[in-house]
Structure formats: structure tokens, C-alpha cells
Amino acid sequence: MITQPASIDLTGDPKRRSRERTIRSIFLVAGLMSVAISALIIVSLAGEAWRFVSQVDVGSLWTLGWFPRRGFYDIPTLLIATLVIAGTGMLVAVPLGLGAASYLSEYATPRNRRWMKPALEILAGIPSVVLGFWALTFISPQVVQRFFSSAKPFTMLAAGLGVGVLVTPLVATVSEDAMRAVPRSLREASYGLGANKASTVRTVVFPAAISGIAASLILAVSRAIGETMIVFMAAGAVGGALRTFNPLEPGQTMTAAIASLATGTDQVAGEGLAFQSLFFVGLLLFVLTLALNVLSNRIVRRFREKYE
């Protein structure tokens, strides 16, 4: 077909090609950077954590409470407090968030949706310091102490409720996006079979959107476990904590423990082992969230109802 092969030149502009190569390397560096930073964090955490573990009296990792200044590094204390606060937060965020998502995606009139969705997004943008302060000055006296008159001003419950408020918009917005992405034809199929709204949401929309909903819950749990400011401000126990499941007691999460150690609230800044325990707790937190992610990925893959 080619009659005059010599008459056309397809080699292109060499300058353009070298320019594209440059751009490609810039993006490659940017991509590698995030990997490198993650690796760096893990390495520095692991190194210091190892130094801590190799020097500490191992028994002190699970006896008594968390009092690093006095050499008590009870890890269960931190884990339990983390669990209690994140758990309380999720108890608030799951029903509220999924409820809001269901309302917005299935029930709300377009008019209501138009202002409610942005309102939620604004709520999602409130800095956690503000929520921490609010937990301390409002949730604690007006909610916790109203229902439990014996409760102290600093409680894990107040912090947990604050964390719940923090992650509710996250659950709501991400879940709502997932639910709205479910094709209308599936809803019509369901309604056409005589399903009402509630069962359509429960048996058609939810299962079809499950991977997005699960993703929102995982994000929320990760966020709740990693949340520092609210816990630091509202859960008390910044100087150390006793091991307790009681949400009406003060408690110290892993994040709050790190914050205390790093900021010197514990009055140990830079001092020997106590400071190094920070790295150990940090590594633990990292492993915990990672495990959570892996686990949830499995669950999502198993229960996903894929639609095309």
C-alpha cells in the first residue's frame, strides 16, 4: 500500500520525546517519594521500637497501668482505651452515618439533598481540635455527666462520642456515594417486585454497595483509632492511665500516649526508655491499622455483590 515510503518522516520531534522522558521521570520520583517516606517511617519506628523492647523489662509491658515515667508500660491499657474510645465512636458513627447515607441516597427529596450533603461535608471538615474542645466543654458536662452524674469531667465516653461525631460524616458521605452508584435499574427491579423502600435499601442497595460501605467503615475505624486531639483533650489521663474498660473513667489511647510523650506532658521528654516507648506504641498502631485494612479487604471481597 505504501507507494512512496521515503516521502514521509515518522520519526517525530526528538525534543518532544526527551521532554516526555523528563516528565515521566518527574512523576516517577513523585511516586517513589511516597513509597520512600513510608519505608523511612517504618524503618525509624522499627529501629527505635526494637531498642525499646530489647532494653525494657518485658514484664512491665503487661502489668499495672501506663506510667512511662515510672517504668510501667502496660500495652493492654493503651489497647483497651483505644478499643473503648474507637468502639464508642463507631457505635455513634455506624448507625448515624449509615442512616444519613440511606436517607440522602434513597429517601431525601432532591431539594433536601441539595443542602444536606454540603452540610455534612462541612461537618467533615471541622478540625479535630475544635471537636476535642467541644467534647470537653459540651459533650462531657451536657451529655455524659447529665446521664451519669458520678462521671468525671474527663472520660473515655466523652472522647468516644466526640470521635463518633468526627467520623460520622466520613461514614455518611463515602457510603452515600457508594449507594448512589448502585444502578437505578436494580432499584426498579426491587420496587417492581413489590419491595418497599426499607427492604430495597437493605436487600438490594446495601449489598450492591457493600464494598463502598465497608470502605467507609474501615476508613472510619482507622480514623477513630488514629484520632489524637479529641482523645488528648477529652479523655484525660495524660500523665498515665490505669487499665480499665469502664468508659466513664479517664483513659489513654495509643495516640494520646504518643502525644503525651512527644509533647512532654508526661514530663519525660527525651528521657531514656520512656521516650523510646513512643516508637514502640507508634509501630503497634501502624501494625494495627494495617491488619485492619488487610482484614477488611478480605471481608469486602467475600461479600461483594458485583454489578455491571
Binding site: 435499574s185 436494580l186 426498579e188 427491579a189 426491587s190 417486585l193 455483590e305 458485583k306 454489578y307
Partner: peptide, 11 residues
Amino acid sequence: GMVFQKPNPFP
């Protein structure tokens, strides 16, 4: 009951 133009089985 209704059957739609495009088959829409549930996943």
C-alpha cells in the same frame, strides 16, 4: 409486576 427493557437481575 414488571419486566424491564434491559434485563436487570440482582447481583
